[in-house]
């Protein structure tokens, strides 16, 4: 399985990433990609900017581990995870997860799984800025419940 992980300030080009993921591969039958974007309304309305902090070193490791775990659970040919850090504006793309497999089901489920684990395990923290002040975003119970769906009994 080909794994590409990047934690970067710059934006990403989904089409270019898909070309890179599938380059020279005629056995890939399905590519699923998820793009997360910064919303202007989250814990409070009127979000003007978002600062994303991470833990260099551990972040890349944990994303790599999540991709490897997805590869153990589904038949995947390639995984790309790109997460942006630094200062972002509403409407900016923040995260890209792309999975490739011979058939669609594995690609869909693995992409969903990677996002659920990324949101609850990878060391990223969001600080939202609004006209009424800045605050660190709280964890969400719904994210933990989503990740718990994948627990192996």
């Amino acid at each position: 399985m080909k794994i590409a992980i990047s934690v970067q300030k710059a934006t990403f080009d989904t089409e270019a990433e898909q070309r890179r993921l599938t380059a020279g591969r005629l056995d890939i039958g399905a590519v699923v990609s998820f793009t997360g974007r910064v919303r202007d309304t989250n814990e409070r309305p009127g979000v003007t900017a978002l600062t994303l902090e991470h833990f260099p070193g551990m972040t890349e490791n944990s994303l790599h581990e999540i991709a490897l775990e997805a590869g153990e659970r589904w038949t995947l040919q390639a995984v790309t995870i790109i997460h942006r850090v630094g200062c972002l504006q509403p409407g900016d793309a923040i995260v890209l997860v792309m999975t490739a497999s011979p058939h669609r089901r594995a690609a869909f489920e693995a992409c969903d799984f990677i996002m659920d684990y990324l949101k609850t395990r990878a060391p990223f923290w969001k600080k939202e800025h609004t006209d009424s002040g800045s605050y660190w975003v709280s964890e969400r119970q719904s994210d933990h419940e989503a990740a718990d769906r994948w627990e192996l009994s």
């Binding site: 833990f55 551990m58 990324l118 990223f124 923290w125 709280s138």
Partner: peptide, 10 residues
């Protein structure tokens, strides 16, 4: 050693 709050990426 690093201490940090619950993660909120994605």
């Amino acid at each position: 050693i690093a201490f940090f709050p619950p993660v909120t990426g994605g």
